[in-house]
Every structure is written in C-alpha cells, then in structure tokens.
Amino acid sequence: MEHLTFWGHFGVWVAAFLTLGIYSFLYRDNPWYKFTEAVFIGISAGYWVVVLFFDNFYGKFWVGRGEEPMLWIGAILGLMMLMRLVPKIGWIARWPLAFIVGATSGLWMMNYLTSNAMSQVQSTIMPLFGEGFGASFGEIIGNLIIIVGTFTGLIYFFFSKEHKGAFGATARVGIWGLMITFGAMFGYTVMSRMSLLIGRVDFIFRDWLGLIQ
C-alpha cells in the first residue's frame, strides 16, 4: 500500500467500492448494486467490442486479407449477417447462421463420438479382476464401479424404452451413480469457489484496509 502512487491508491479505492457494491446484492437490490452492475456491463460490453474488432476484423481479416482468400468467405458471411439491419433483405442473415450451425454440428459430432463414446467404451472393456488376476480388492471394486456405472448410465440415457421393470431398476442404479458423482463434484467445486471468495476478502483486508500484513 505504501508504495502506491496517488492513482494506485485511487484504483484500489475504486476496486473496493465496486467489490462492496456487488456484494451489497447479498442484502437486497439497491442503487449501489445497480450502479456497479451498469458500470460492469457498460465497460465489459465496450471492451469486447474493441477486442473483437481489433482481434477479428482488423487482426485476422484486414491484415491477412491478401494472403488468405478464405478470410473473404468469413467477411462475406459477416456482411450477410448485417443484412438484418435492412428489413427487406433481412432473410439473408439466416444463411450465415445456417452455415455456423451446420459446420459446428459436423465438427462436434466427430469430437463427441471419439472422446465421449468410443474412448469411454474402450476404457470400460476391462477384466474385472485385472490383467492376470493382478488387481487388489480396492481395484476390483473400482473396476466394478466403472463397468456398472457406465452401463447403467447408458441405460438411464436410453430414450427408446420406458423405465419400467428390470430396465427401470437398472436405470435407477444409473441415476444413483450420477447423483453420487454430482455430490462429490458439488463439494469439490464449492471448495474452489471458496478460494475466489478468499481472494476478494484478501483484497479488501490487505490491499484496501491494510489490516492483513
């Protein structure tokens, strides 16, 4: 704190004012929060406009337009998006959207098929007792959880059959597995969020108030 210039101190005070403004929402909606919210949204929206313009339009298209003919396709699609501003030819804006949706679906389909489906099946096909009976008791339990968890999870997400009888019971095992996993993930993520809170509290008490040395 003592090494900061006037503007350094000013910055810390502004940051503290805005941080407390956001936290004031915990009490109720109030003018302080509204002000902070408006500042945050305004600055971030402006910031992203500048970043996207200079990174994409200038940094990628304008600089490389002579060397990469493919960039013109992107520019034309972008221009078609702007046709939305002209009501009579606004329908043209649907074409670049259709292009993005179609291309994205195709790209992601292969990614999902390899990472989420095939790799999962390949890793699940394992001997229950380990290679050559090499697994310990704990490892056997672990293998069992992976195999049963994957299989029953797939049953739960099978939409062509009603969850009744033995099929329904298996699906319930699957959802139990999912819920236990979610519980563990909840605890883990909450702990990581606590570190974010600690970071802000540390800022207030150390950088702003100077109570922590």
Binding site: F25, Y33, E37, F40, I41, S44, W48, L52
Partner: peptide, 14 residues
C-alpha cells in the same frame, strides 16, 4: 447484454 461472463450474470441477477 455483454460477452463478459460475470457482467452478464450481474445483469441477469438484476
């Protein structure tokens, strides 16, 4: 609203 993650969240909360 904005591309900024938590700026968006602040607005939606409001």
């Amino acid at each position: 609203i904005t591309d900024e993650q938590f700026g968006y969240v602040a607005a939606v909360n409001g």
